[in-house]
Design a protein around this nucleic acid. Structure first.
Lengths: 170, 170
DNA sequence: CTTGGAATGTCAACAAGACTGACATAAACT
DNA sequence: AGTTTATGTCAGTCTTGTTGACATTCCAAG
């Protein structure tokens, strides 16, 4: 292995950012950052016998009100049994409403109730606060790079889902 | 709320990158990207009755050979009982070696065996391949921003752990 | 030197949340 | 009428987190 600390030579393309050491740093950064990312909502959820799975469902129902169970399934990437357990408790607790579809009555369309929206806001606020601090700390250009790398890291099917949510369905 | 799509006005500091919409995109990007981030090693692990917890232990033992259980605990952020179960199977399977400390016999120092190192390499290679593709796609400046935001997102105690691993202990 | 507390690690039992597989129902499609 | 699709449910398993109880070792105060 050559000395990774020697001065980068630009002029062509410097590929020093692709060394195993750089990649490893990125891997560890993802690990530690994801912990921070979930820490604040997790604390709130723990107080009310909910978990991260409930948060995810609430988040995406809020983002796409009226979404079907199947659609939510493909975004969350879990089995219907797993999602169903979560939805059942959320509906029982009056945070989510499930309405039978009008055009296709097999489908269930999911909505947050007022109570659901209240919890969503509480969780979002906590998560956004940390995100905002990180963004502010790093500055707009770092944020652009951050998103670019994350998007490139997704599975292609998830890139589609992500862009759909971001820009609205085409 | 004012129109988030009006043209950014620079000259002062544009704070448009701190809108709730921008933050929400970052949150969703983290969610989807983390799934991609873990997907490849997860597939390998599933074939051998191991899970993500085993991967994490192996990764950090490889990074800091001879580390104590307690030290590993603080990096991984789980309880000692949880870590112990994972370590027990790794030791039983001959991937990790646990040596009683020489100065303090209460401590166990952890090392990867040859087989452990082989698995570490296999998992790392899979994860790095995706990381490398993402880095390459996004370019060096994006990568710098990526790391900057992730670091700012960590809990301060984890920032310390991360920098220690990155630069070596001071 | 002894004794009690702190540090370290192990074992057991339990819970959340993922999974698979099987099956039921209703609606839509052919 | 028969098949496919969307959803929900029951049962069982696995991973990985938790707490509680306990053993061993170290160290420091009496």
């Amino acid at each position: 292995m050559s000395d990774a600390r020697s001065a980068p030579v630009y002029g062509g393309e410097s590929l020093l950012f692709l060394t195993d050491e750089q990649l490893r740093q990125g891997i560890e950064a993802m690990f530690f950052a994801y912990r921070g990312f979930t820490a604040d909502p997790d604390r709130i959820l723990a107080e009310m016998a909910y978990g991260r799975a409930h948060h995810r469902a609430i988040h995406f129902i809020n983002r796409a009100p009226g979404t079907t169970v199947n659609n939510l399934l493909s975004i969350l990437g879990v089995t219907k049994q797993s999602l169903n357990r979560v939805l059942r408790t959320l509906i029982a607790d009056g945070l989510v409403e499930s309405r039978v579809g009008t055009v296709d009555k097999r489908e269930r369309h999911l909505f947050l109730t007022d109570a659901g929206r209240a919890l969503e806001t509480k969780l979002s606020d906590a998560q956004r606060a940390r995100m905002r601090a990180a963004y502010k700390d790093a500055g707009p250009e770092a944020v652009a790079g951050f998103k670019q790398v994350l998007e490139a890291m997704m599975d292609t099917s998830m890139q589609r889902a992500y862009r759909n949510l971001k820009d609205g369905p085409t």
